[in-house]
Amino acid sequence: MNLKTGNSSNGFTPEISLDKLHRMAAELILPGRSILRLLNTVLEFVTNFLARVLGSSLIRRHFHLLLSGLVLFGPVLSFWVSKYSIFANSNHYLYRKFLRSTWGWTCIFTGAFIILLSLSVRHSTSLSLRHLSRVGLTGLLWWSCQRLLTLLEDAAGTCYEPMTPGQDGQSPASPVQPLLLLHEDQNKASCLKAHMLWRGYEVSQDVLILCFCCLLLVEEMCVFGHHLERQKPLQRSPGTPLRVVFLLCVLLLLVWMFLLLCLLAYFPKFPSQQLGGALGYLGWRGLYQGLYRLGSRWGCPGLPREGLSTTVYTNKQP
């Protein structure tokens, strides 16, 4: 008796066909496509709403006033916040991973958004590099500001070493504040590293870079709403990667504002934080309201909207 015939007569050999496999794969792929279509619809709705909010004249013209009010009156919240909160710990994860690399995160997300937006409009590498140069100029300004503030703090401050009660002849129970030994040859970094006291004028660099990055993100992202309006007559929609990066930039803006509020509420330092906020505002004002308005004819990268609003309409009826 043939073994193959015997197995077939007993029904042990399964009947495999390409049509059946194709139907099974289609049944598995169909729910996945439905989920992706739903997520894409939600992404379009959320990004369209956020683009309209950030592109409104109220946000573009008055966001710096909102940020200024937050810096001025944020320290008042220190009377109501709890010192036992997790955000009152300076070693919190948000402070260690985001606050110390604020410009790095802003540079990555803003640069990705600028490149995707410029390529989706004009497909021009030179235009993308010209708009991306705004991020480079901003990074150069921040690096120069850091070095200048460090030099000013080292010149205006003094390092002190606390004396133990036995060194100045006082008893351990004396209520008088122990004297301090002066160290003239120390800068701020080496003084704090040696666990000594540094006293002098300082500017909060954390508040400065947070305020500057918030203003930069709003300035760069407000163009997305205008881009959506220009694409409506063409019946085109921005790609999913551009929408995802735009959403990530909005989330990053919310994180920076939350960290700024935490610094002002849990670690108030007047007036160094207010000076930092003022310098951040002046930096944004000098670049986006001054230098970038000169245009490309002066060798400047121009404003975020420059060169991105020229759209060629096709199939247009006279």
Rank of each mutant, 00 (worst) to 15 (best):
F79V: 08
L117T: 03
I108L: 07
T110C: 06
L140Y: 06
W142C: 07
L66V: 15
V121K: 07
P75V: 05
L148T: 10
N91A: 06
L140C: 11
S128P: 02
G136E: 15
L149R: 02
V81F: 00
H64P: 05
S126G: 12
I86G: 14
G111Y: 02
G139Y: 02
F87H: 05
I59C: 04
R60M: 09
S120E: 05
F73Y: 06
R60G: 07
R134V: 10
L65T: 15
I86Q: 11
R134K: 12
Y84A: 09
R122T: 08
W143S: 14
L149C: 04
T110A: 06
T138C: 13
L67R: 05
G74D: 01
S120Q: 04
V71T: 03
H62V: 09
Y93C: 10
L148K: 09
S101N: 15
L151C: 13
R60E: 07
L99F: 04
H123D: 09
L72C: 13
F73M: 05
I59L: 08
C107P: 13
L66N: 14
L132Q: 08
F63I: 14
A88R: 00
H92Y: 11
H131K: 08
L94E: 05
C145N: 12
L66S: 14
R60Y: 10
Y95H: 02
Y93M: 08
S82I: 00
L151H: 13
S144N: 09
R100Y: 13
L149I: 04
A88L: 03
L72I: 15
L117A: 03
S82A: 01
W143G: 08
F113C: 00
S68D: 10
W105V: 01
S133C: 14
L65D: 13
T102E: 01
V76D: 10
C107Y: 15
I86L: 13
S124Y: 09
W103A: 07
S90E: 13
W142Q: 08
K83F: 10
S85A: 02
V81S: 00
H131V: 04
C145Y: 14
R100S: 14
Q146E: 14
G139L: 03
S82K: 00
N89T: 06
L119P: 12
L77Y: 01
H64C: 11
L129S: 04
S128I: 02
S120W: 02
N89R: 06
S68I: 14
R130E: 09
F109N: 04
I86C: 10
L148S: 07
R61H: 14
S101W: 06
W142D: 10
T150F: 11
F109T: 03
W143M: 11
R130L: 12
I86V: 14
S124E: 10
F73H: 06
L67A: 11
F63M: 11
T110W: 02
L119R: 09
I59F: 04
S120I: 03
L116K: 05
S82R: 01
R122D: 06
L132A: 15
W80S: 12
W105L: 02
T110K: 03
L72K: 12
V121H: 06
L119N: 14
Y84D: 09
V71H: 00
G74Q: 00
V135Q: 06
S85D: 01
F98H: 05
L67T: 09
H64L: 11
W105I: 02
L127W: 02
I114R: 00
G74R: 00
R96S: 15
F73Q: 05
V76E: 07
L70F: 08
V135F: 10
L119T: 13
